[in-house]
Simulated assay, not measured.
Amino acid sequence: MSALQPTLDKPESLTGLSDDEFQALLLEGVSRTFALTIPQLPENLYRPVANAYLLCRIVDTVEDEVSLSPDQKKIFCERFIETVKTGHGANDFAADLSPLLSEQTIPAEHTLIGLTPRVIQITHSFDPQQIEALATCVETMAQGMPIFQAQNLSNGLPTMADMDKYCYYVAGCVGEMLAKLFCHYSPEIAAHRERLLELSVSFGQGLQMTNILKDIWDDASRGVCWLPQDIFDETGFDLSTLTPETDDENFRKGLEHLISIAHGHLRNALTYTQLIPSHETGIRNFCLWALGMAVLTLRKIKQHLDFTQSNQVKITRNSVKATILTTRLTGRSNLLLSLLFNLTSRGLESPDWTYHPQSLKAKSAL
């Protein structure tokens, strides 16, 4: 261990860290939520899942970098896909990308890009099935996200099907990857492989839709809208007129419909979690904490449809602590989990809107 206190603003201090310590420190820098949930996983799952998140975050960093042109983003994404698949080219990738990152990219992500070679080295310490799961996810995400980045998003997405596709590229494919890793870890879990893979796409979409709804006004301030126009056609609202100053009852009716859709996906997330053996408490906690926080966020949005800033519907730290405590107490019982879900999500379904998630087979439709 280096005598230097390891911190992300001193990358050289990370040299002496073990792989787990190294990934934990990077996770803490780029996502406090996942730094909290991923360590709940069993040891044999923690390392590949932590690595997978860092790989996905590298793709996100490329896609979000304002200084890069669409062509540059495409080139860096293609290079990264090849690097993840083969284990080669990480040093050149990091050396070429790092100087191009702007100040709008957070310092922890600057550090992550610079440390790409070590991240990739860890990736290729896994067995072939795990590497394939990670590489497939990265490839899907890196090829799919630019499709939407190249669009004019100021008027929203045309249809709910487009939203399904977007959610698949940024979250559903991650859900599939996690399901594959869980099945690789446990033959008992693998007995439900096909159903888990199907539900995992819906799980990812529920979480992503919750984030989209929470961040509507932050996105609108940047001239971006991820909402589907066809849903709002039914309520009589034109998303091209959406601004941070919008105060329209027809818009709020559309939000209620989307909340109901997200709720349907989160119900599938509960089914997914209940298929995990009850003795796998670490995996269940990993799933339930994300699910619980999403349900509470949707509930706050439903209760405050006139919100104008994301922090108005962000759940409190006490709510996070309560979610953790409650799921630890009930997480082994499918019956109690169903009762808890029904109680906390009451009212999220719109009485005049029934949605049957069609994106469970989203991959085959893309």
Rank of each mutant, 00 (worst) to 15 (best):
M1Y: 14
L4R: 11
Q5I: 15
T7E: 15
T7F: 05
K10G: 02
K10I: 08
P11M: 09
S13R: 11
S13F: 13
L14S: 11
D19M: 02
D20N: 13
D20M: 08
V30L: 09
R32P: 02
L36P: 01
T37N: 02
I38G: 08
P39W: 02
Q40L: 06
E43W: 05
A50L: 08
Y53H: 11
Y53M: 00
L54E: 14
L55P: 02
D60C: 02
V62H: 06
E65L: 11
E65W: 03
S67F: 06
L68R: 02
S69E: 12
P70G: 05
E82A: 15
K85F: 10
T86R: 08
G87R: 14
A90N: 12
N91H: 14
F93C: 04
S98Q: 14
L100N: 12
H110I: 01
T111Y: 11
I113K: 03
G114Q: 12
V119N: 07
T123K: 06
D127S: 09
Q130R: 15
I131Y: 07
E132K: 13
A133P: 15
A133D: 10
A135I: 07
E139D: 13
M141C: 09
A142V: 04
F148K: 01
Q151P: 03
Q151G: 04
Q151W: 14
S154N: 12
N155D: 10
L157W: 13
A161W: 10
D162C: 00
M163K: 07
D164Y: 15
K165Y: 10
E176W: 12
K180E: 15
L181P: 07
F182C: 02
Y185G: 00
Y185L: 07
P187F: 00
P187L: 01
H192W: 09
E194W: 07
R195W: 07
R195F: 01
R195H: 11
R195E: 15
R195P: 09
L196D: 06
L197H: 01
E198I: 03
G206M: 04
M209H: 06
D215R: 00
W217L: 00
D218Y: 05
L227E: 12
E234Q: 13
T235W: 02
T235R: 09
D238A: 01
D238K: 01
E245S: 04
D248N: 06
I259E: 11
H263W: 12
G264W: 12
R267G: 03
T273Y: 03
T273Q: 05
Q274I: 00
I276K: 03
P277G: 01
H279R: 06
N285C: 04
F286V: 00
L288I: 00
A290R: 02
H304V: 01
F307G: 01
V313K: 04
V320P: 03
K321H: 12
T323L: 08
I324G: 01
L325Q: 10
L325H: 02
T327Y: 14
T327E: 13
T327P: 02
R328N: 15
L329D: 09
N334A: 00
L336S: 04
L337T: 05
F341T: 04
N342R: 14
S345F: 10
S345H: 11
S345R: 06
P351N: 04
D352H: 08
H356A: 05
K361C: 06
L366M: 14
L366D: 08
